[in-house]
Amino acid sequence: MKKLQKRFDDFIALKSLKHTHQRNLIFDVFLNSDGHLSTEELYEKIKSIDSSVGQATVYRTMKLLCEAGIAHEIHFGDGLTRYEVDDSGKKHHDHLICTVCGKIFEFVDELIEQRQKELAKKYDFDLTSHRMYLYGVCADCRKKI
């Protein structure tokens, strides 16, 4: 977290922006939250801590975190923009998404990663990045159906 805090501080200084209590609070809450948050979900968490922080400030700060390489946007096809920590030290992962309750599971599978590299090589393709989202119904929701 200290490495990401330094990256954010350096980015704020580079952009000649102010270090504000509100930006720091949004940074802290985002980094200490589990899951994939939308700006609305993050705003609700922030509002319960400091009601003076506006939704627009949360939105703008998340854009700054993306520009700084600390967060990145994720689109799971439900119309919401969610954010995830973009920590280069974190192992690449993919997502399972329940289409009933919206629960999101992260997973790492070395076999899938290896197969993607093999396919790229087979087609003489320089693979620079990828994201995999698998949609279905989680065990909890299947019990209710």
Rank of each mutant, 00 (worst) to 15 (best):
Lys6Thr: 03
Arg7Tyr: 00
Phe11Met: 02
Gly102Gln: 09
Glu113Thr: 03
Ile12His: 03
Leu25Asn: 01
Ile49Val: 14
Ser51Trp: 10
Ala71Lys: 05
Glu113Cys: 00
Gly79Thr: 12
Val29Pro: 01
Cys101Asn: 00
Leu31Ala: 03
Leu37Arg: 07
Lys6Met: 06
Lys6Ser: 01
Gly89Cys: 05
Ser33Cys: 11
Lys143Asp: 14
Asp109Cys: 07
Tyr135Ala: 04
Asp9His: 00
Tyr133Leu: 07
His93Lys: 07
Phe11Glu: 05
Ile49Arg: 13
Cys98Glu: 06
Tyr59Trp: 07
Ala68Gly: 10
Asn24Phe: 03
Arg115Gly: 09
Lys45Thr: 08
Arg7His: 00
His75Val: 08
His130Ile: 02
Lys121Phe: 10
Leu17Gly: 02
Glu118Thr: 08
Asp124Lys: 15
Glu44Tyr: 06
His19Gln: 01
Asp86Ser: 14
Glu84Ile: 15
Val108Gln: 06
Thr128Leu: 15
Ile49His: 08
Gln116Leu: 13
Ser51Pro: 13
Cys101Asp: 00
Glu106Asp: 09
Thr57Val: 15
Cys66Lys: 12
Lys117Asp: 10
Asp28Gly: 06
Thr81Lys: 12
Lys103His: 08
Asp124Arg: 15
His36Arg: 14
Asp10Asn: 11
Lys121Tyr: 07
Lys91Gln: 12
Ser129Leu: 12
Cys98Thr: 02
Ser16Phe: 14
Leu96Cys: 07
Gln5Ile: 00
Lys90Glu: 11
Lys15Leu: 08
Arg7Gly: 04
Leu119Ala: 09
Phe105Gly: 08
Leu4Thr: 04
His92Ile: 11
His19Tyr: 07
Asp124Val: 14
Gly54Thr: 08
His93Glu: 07
Leu4Pro: 01
Ser16Tyr: 12
Gly54Lys: 07
Glu110His: 01
His95Ser: 13
Asp87Asn: 11
Phe105Asp: 12
Glu40Gln: 09
Lys47Asn: 09
Ile145Ala: 08
Leu17Glu: 11
Asp94Arg: 10
Val137Glu: 03
Tyr123Gly: 08
Cys138Pro: 05
Leu111Ser: 15
Arg131Ser: 15
Asp9Lys: 01
His93Pro: 06
Tyr43Gln: 02
Leu4Glu: 09
Gln55Ser: 13
Leu4Gln: 12
Met132His: 15
Asp124Thr: 13
Asp78Pro: 00
Thr20Ser: 05
Leu37Ala: 07
Tyr83Trp: 10
Asp86Ile: 06
Leu65Gly: 13
Glu118Lys: 08
Leu119Lys: 11
Asp34Cys: 03
Lys117Glu: 13
Phe105Trp: 12
Val53Tyr: 06
Ile104Phe: 07
Leu14Ser: 15
His92Pro: 06
Val85Ile: 13
Ser33Ala: 13
Gly102Met: 08
Cys101Tyr: 04
Lys47Pro: 04
Gly77Glu: 00
Leu64Phe: 10
Ala13Val: 02
Arg7Thr: 09
Tyr43Pro: 02
His130Ser: 06
Met132Lys: 15
Tyr133Pro: 01
Asp78Asn: 13
Leu37Gln: 10
His130Leu: 07
Gln114Glu: 14
Leu64Lys: 11
Cys141Lys: 03
Tyr59Phe: 09
Lys91Val: 10
Leu25Phe: 03
Cys138Gln: 03
Lys91Ile: 12
Ile26Met: 00
Leu96Gly: 06
Thr99Phe: 02
Leu37Met: 09
Cys141Trp: 01
Arg23Met: 02
Gly79Glu: 14
Thr81Met: 09
Lys117Thr: 08
Phe30Thr: 02
Ile46Met: 02
His36Val: 14
Asn32Val: 12
Thr81Asp: 01
Phe107Met: 03
Phe125Asp: 00
Gly54Glu: 05
